[in-house]
Design a binder for these strands. Structure first.
Lengths: 303, 303
DNA sequence: TACCACTATAAGCTGTGCTTATAATATGAG
DNA sequence: CTCATATTATAAGCACAGCTTATAGTGGTA
């Protein structure tokens, strides 16, 4: 009896779920298997134990007294197991985290604010990697990737968490000095100066903005400057070199100080969505959650 | 991490065993699987948890600190599970038991002694069934079968326990009165009277005894009486009707009281081996163990 | 009665969990 | 040092456990 039941403890795991929900289909959803599988597992378990655990009442499966006893026991046992596994696999809060994101984000947002995080959590060391691509988290030993774009979710491996944490519009921006020397009132006025674009802009490209604003003749524009990342583009623009397209969160401070302006205040048709990508089963999950929480709050308070 | 580990708790069961033994091959023996399976399971578990649980030291697998922590946790959790399952599946000592055995045993041994058992354990009800065959325990709702013969083990389903509990010689016996009226000194003298045989004697038949004793002419013997069970045979014999072959444990009391005698004290070549047949996973195991223990002691004390 | 939201069951498929065979490893003895 | 031994590790193969889909069955409600 006991030997038979302990031969397949996984049935007990499914049992705990079905018993808690008093519903096979809810258990199925939680366990990510089909209702039929749950039903068959429960039948198997009842056969193994030669007792009845559930009583069907309409749409739900009420527990027999024996079922209730077993629920209590399984919950206690799995709690012990969970805590035990936690203890050996989950690292303490103190330790290191490796963060990967775009060069623009790391340079313009993260590095300037990192001292705030470190002041709050001096026991957490942050290592920052910038990359324009979606690298493999496991291969590169990355704990958290902060990614931007419209297809992050689709391009993220299903074994990883992909958490949306906000979005920003993209605007054409130039230096205040340039805006004083040239009268920029309409989208077509931008064609009077240099336009700084990224070599890989994705969907946040100038042609899309010009199309969206119904601007003619941009195809004949000659003054293009191509750079590798938004921080480089902004560096050029801050020094009076035309316009670039930038997500608002990246330039909040420069807009406030008046270094950068948006004379043509029409956003790009594509917004920049932001995502955290990490493994929820990471041993560093406790540390990760702290960083993610901090970053989310920081982003919200500066937006 | 945790989710991954809890997806296959059976690995943790094997772990507890391997960790306790600090040996994969010992764990394999206990779990009745191959050493290679254990090795692969432990590798899988270490991968799932992304930690090292064992350190190989020659012929044994020492535990890492993490392995020790997990051993402690798994032992605790499985203890809780075991107790929980026990509580819902194992019946109390009080209750009923259904015992099946031959008619001879039930009539001649068990029924006369049952009051002794009931005096000791008034909360246990015994239901007795007699049958000459090996019935299916589960089908007939038999909790314990007491069986005799040379091939009980081979004829018992492997899912059941088959416990040998002793053996007895078989002798030709007759009434004291008959022994006084006819001089029985040698095996051939038995041919002067009726011989009571069973319709299904198995290997405990008269021809085997006569061959064993080198007795000539038994094939021409005309005074045969055929009955269905040993208790019927003994009933006839007690009333002066010739000889029958009987296992000693069945006639102990009648030998002591002088009702039956063994004038030719040569045992049958085949002894009667006794077995308990039951399901060790039975919910009534607690009760069964009590009965089995009592019967074993009772049999030993009267033999 | 019909409808609905669930559970139960049957049949089929595939990948998990074993097996066997053999390689690799650690240890001790000579 | 070599060799033997008793273990664990690994690879390849197989079959059946554990799922799936499809559909039947059930209980409750209007």
């Amino acid at each position: 009896m006991i030997k038979r039941a302990l031969k397949n403890i996984n049935l007990l795991h499914s049992f705990e779920c079905a018993a808690r929900h008093q519903s096979y289909s809810k258990a199925a959803a939680e366990l990510c298997i089909s209702q039929a599988a749950v039903s068959q597992q429960m039948r198997q378990l009842e056969e193994n134990l030669t007792i009845q655990l559930f009583l069907r009442k309409g749409k739900s499966m009420l527990l027999t007294q024996q079922g209730k006893t077993l629920l209590s026991g399984t919950q206690q046992a799995f709690k012990v197991l969970e805590e035990s596994i936690n203890k050996i696999t989950v690292e303490e809060i103190a330790g290191s985290l490796t963060i990967s994101s775009t060069q623009a984000f790391t340079t313009l947002w993260l590095m300037p604010k990192l001292s705030k995080f470190s002041a709050l959590y001096p026991d957490i060391n942050i290592r920052v990697m910038s990359s324009p691509q979606f690298e493999d988290l496991k291969e590169q030993h990355i704990d958290l990737a902060i990614r931007f774009g419209p297809r992050v979710k689709e391009n993220t491996d299903t074994s990883l968490n992909c958490e949306y944490f906000g979005e920003d519009p993209v605007y054409p921006v130039c230096s205040a000095a340039l805006a004083k020397s040239i009268n920029f009132k309409a989208p077509k006025d931008l064609l009077k100066t240099w336009l700084v674009s990224l070599d890989n802009p994705g969907c946040y490209d100038w042609p899309s903005w010009f199309e969206y604003t119904n601007t003619q003749g941009y195809q004949n524009h000659q003054q293009w400057t191509e750079v590798h990342s938004t921080d480089m583009a902004l560096n050029a623009v801050l020094n009076g070199h035309g316009f670039t397209l930038a997500a608002r969160y990246l330039i909040i401070e420069q807009l406030k100080s008046g270094q950068l302006v948006m004379p043509v205040n029409i956003p790009h048709p594509n917004v920049v969505k932001r995502y955290f990508v990490y493994d929820e089963n990471s041993a560093k999950i406790a540390r990760l959650n702290i960083f993610i929480q901090w970053l989310t709050q920081e982003m919200n308070s500066t937006n």
